[in-house]
């Protein structure tokens, strides 16, 4: 693995989102090859100027006062979002929590699944 993989933590105050405006830098050792949308002009152009609008495209609406922190991967550092533990998952084991984590929630364009989505 290349060096400098940095995890950035989502909290109830801050939501992190990762982009590469110049090309397609992505933590693919961990997440696999990036999806087409991550490498596309709409995402690369808008993520740094209108991140809330981009989140809307993903069906994600954050509270108006949540800070949004966008990380543009312009060097060989790579970023991975640590999603926030959803309500109802208090006391869950690491393995059970992992079942709620999605790829998009680690890019910051999605939220983890909720415990009530996990009943199946």
């Amino acid at each position: 693995m290349g060096d400098h993989l940095i995890a950035v933590e989502n909290t109830d105050r801050v939501h992190n989102m990762v982009v590469c405006t110049l090309c397609s830098c992505y933590p693919w050792e961990v997440l696999g090859l990036p999806p087409v949308w991550y490498k596309s002009a709409p995402y690369r152009s808008r993520a740094v100027k209108d991140p809330r609008g981009v989140l809307t495209d993903f069906g994600v609406a954050l509270p108006k006062d949540t800070e949004i922190r966008v990380w543009d991967s312009t060097a060989e550092t790579r970023f991975l979002v640590l999603p926030m533990r959803p309500a109802g998952a208090e006391g869950w084991s690491e393995e059970r929590l992992a079942s709620l984590v999605t790829r998009d929630s680690m890019i910051g364009t999605g939220l983890p699944r909720r415990p009530q989505d996990d009943v199946a």
Partner: peptide, 20 residues
């Protein structure tokens, strides 16, 4: 290639169950 902040490219369109 230096796309940050450009307008007019439209919505981001995620593909469900995207193949590698």
């Amino acid at each position: 290639h230096d796309m940050g902040g450009m307008d007019g490219f439209g919505k981001v369109e995620p593909e469900a169950n995207e193949p590698v």
